[in-house]
Nucleic acid binder design. Structure first.
Lengths: 144, 144
DNA sequence: ACTAGGTAATGAGCTAAGCTAACGAACGTG
DNA sequence: CACGTTCGTTAGCTTAGCTCATTACCTAGT
């Protein structure tokens, strides 16, 4: 809420570059071969929220509604998600995950941990502590 | 170095989601309309290093060489970069930025600061401090 | 009750930005 | 001096988002 320091500007500039590069690597080194990072993110959101409409998901993932329609269609085709009409508003659709999705999320968590263990070997304990603190802040930033 | 704690796993999982969403927003809310984030990043790298070959740039940006060829071609077409034969190895090409690129970088820094000021209003001083610390770590992570 | 306007999801078509495979020119080494 | 290697590039493909247009449905005003 106060003025940005010169350090802040430099840091966020660095942040910008790092986030772009890191996202490219994450996109490439995906944990589960058959699922795009965004599809994965949608499943994670559904794991947090239980169920949601495509519009809500689009807003949460910062994607346009038509894109979310495609993503949900993909997930449904893969049997990971399940669409049913909204009880009160028949325009809307309620998306929720299947048991297969839960199994997939659990399995993928195992794989991801293996990959993370390997990646985190290059960081010191202090650096990991920094990231642990930074994660929620980045989350907040992404939703601002 | 040491074993990953449960907190670490949760944090990096959160990190993954945040980085993906944030990168999407960065890609969209670009500071300079006519330049993609990656082109911007290449110019920034050239600002740090002075000049480099396409191969070096590709490695630094974690992009395949053909992609870098396209990016450099774009930048050259826009008059922001300038290719000349390597003095000793005639296979290689040396890429360096033009005065126009320097002007553009300066101008874009102003715009970016305005955008950042607005974005950072939603964060507390503590959160900004966390990000300031986290930026170099993410940079390191991106290059691991 | 009916119509006007707004909102949700979707369909169609486009674009951006990466990738791989294949190639030609230039280098260095047995 | 010929052979494999490295560098940049070309060609063509894929993915994952976007916009614009459409359809179905809800809601408020008359």
């Amino acid at each position: 809420m106060s003025e940005l320091s010169e350090d802040d500007r430099a840091a966020v500039s660095e942040l910008r570059g790092a986030v772009m590069r890191l996202s490219r690597r994450l996109r490439h080194q995906r944990v589960d071969e058959s699922l795009s990072p965004t599809e994965m993110a949608v499943l994670a959101t559904l794991a947090r929220c239980g169920s949601a409409t495509p519009g809500e998901l689009a807003r949460k993932e910062h994607v346009q509604p038509p894109s979310m329609t495609r993503i949900v269609a993909m997930l449904e085709a893969k049997g990971l998600v399940h669409r049913e009409p909204h009880p009160e508003d028949r325009r809307q659709v309620v998306v929720s995950r299947t048991e297969q999705a839960d199994a997939m999320l659990a399995e993928s968590r195992v794989k991801r941990n293996a990959w993370l263990a390997q990646l985190a070997e290059g960081l010191t304990d202090e650096e990991r502590a920094v990231l642990r603190e930074a994660a929620p802040v980045l989350e907040k930033l992404a939703h601002l």
